[in-house]
């Protein structure tokens, strides 16, 4: 089983920075992964992750939030954000009908303006995957399913793996799993690592987004370590939150995760994606995330393959702003379809 992507082109980096991130690589290549990686080796690895200064992060975020994004760069940003959105409904009251409506909105966000692109994906609960797959077939809109006993993740690994297999079999292209926060905070790093690895294996061709639930990890040091752990275990994306815990995505947490992604790329050559989710409701907020992204990882990452927004109400504010840029007028929310 591959733990990380093929290490081509990254050897030079690794030779210069003997970073323990490469534990995963080394083990993978020699084929003795399960025995070599243990909680102690992972603890050593996580101790080598640079610490985070919360004041410095807040300052950097505040500085980048003053970037002035106007005119054509605002228009481009808004359209990019639409393309990068995982339009989400994760409610106990979701029904096949509601999911079908959401899919219609995902495919064509603004019925009056065909130039507005489709969103990247719809994100639904496991039982809704079949319905979403049917509704989006042939449109290019992907179906993402939360899995692993979302949002708490309080279940045995076997059950989580089973659920993952189920949503993939139902046609999900992407799986959003939650990590075992309790195990992470208790220092049982191997449990967290191994679970991600097993779920990744169950994903097969589907992409794996690993939700850290940063609101429960609390410190930025934990966020950075959990990010590295998830990436070493095989995450294709790391994601901030379930949206069920407050605070959900914040700019400081996102910056720390982006910096971890950058370090991981330096050490392994692998590009991991980022998904802030929960609490991003306005175009202005979303543009701030995009700026953070642009100035931390930069151009090669500026694609829906590597950056997503997990959001539900954000989309209409984006559409409203696009309409304003195009016409010079703000329109009533009545002119934008709810879903």
């Amino acid at each position: 089983m591959r733990i990380c992507g093929p290490p081509t082109g990254a050897d030079g980096h690794r030779a210069r920075y003997p970073d323990p991130v490469t534990i995963a690589h080394a083990a993978d290549r020699s084929g003795i992964l399960p025995d070599r990686i243990t909680t102690p080796t992972l603890r050593t690895f996580l101790r080598s992750v640079p610490s985070v200064d919360e004041v410095g992060v807040a300052e950097r975020v505040a500085a980048l939030s003053t970037r002035s994004i106007k005119k054509e760069s605002k228009r481009a940003a808004l359209e990019m954000i639409v393309r990068m959105t995982d339009l989400t409904t994760l409610e106990g009251k979701d029904t096949p009908g509601r999911v079908a409506q959401l899919c219609a909105k995902a495919i064509r966000p603004d019925p009056t303006d065909p130039s507005i692109p489709s969103v990247a994906a719809v994100c639904v609960y496991p039982t809704m995957v079949r319905h979403a797959v049917t509704a989006t077939e042939g449109t290019g809109v992907k179906v993402a399913s939360v899995a692993t006993y979302f949002p708490s993740g309080m279940a045995d690994t076997k059950l989580k793996v089973e659920e993952t297999r189920m949503v993939v079999a139902d046609g999900a292209h992407e799986v959003d799993m939650v990590i075992d926060r309790g195990a992470f905070l208790a220092g049982e790093y191997f449990k967290v690592f191994d679970e991600i690895r097993r779920v990744k294996e169950a994903c097969g061709e589907a992409h794996l987004k690993v939700i850290l639930e940063t609101g429960e990890l609390v410190t930025l040091d934990n966020v950075r370590r959990a990010s590295m752990l998830a990436m070493a275990a095989g995450a294709d994306f790391i994601k901030t939150s379930t949206g069920k815990v407050s605070p959900a995505a914040t700019l400081p947490v996102t910056l720390v995760m982006l910096e971890a992604i950058r370090d991981f790329h330096d050490a392994t050559g692998v590009m991991v994606g980022m998904k802030p989710a929960g609490g991003i409701r306005t175009a202005k907020d979303a543009i701030r995330y995009l700026v953070l992204f642009n100035e931390t990882l930069g151009h090669p990452w500026m694609t829906p393959d590597l950056f997503r927004f997990g959001a539900s109400s954000l989309l209409n504010d984006i559409l409203m702003q696009i309409r304003w840029l195009d016409t010079g007028r703000y329109q009533s929310p009545n002119y934008f379809t709810k879903d």
């Binding site: 990380c4 692998v270 590009m271 500026m302």
Partner: peptide, 12 residues
Amino acid sequence: MSRFPTTTHTPL
């Protein structure tokens, strides 16, 4: 490179 074997979009 991305872990995605099916990277479809070029960076914007």
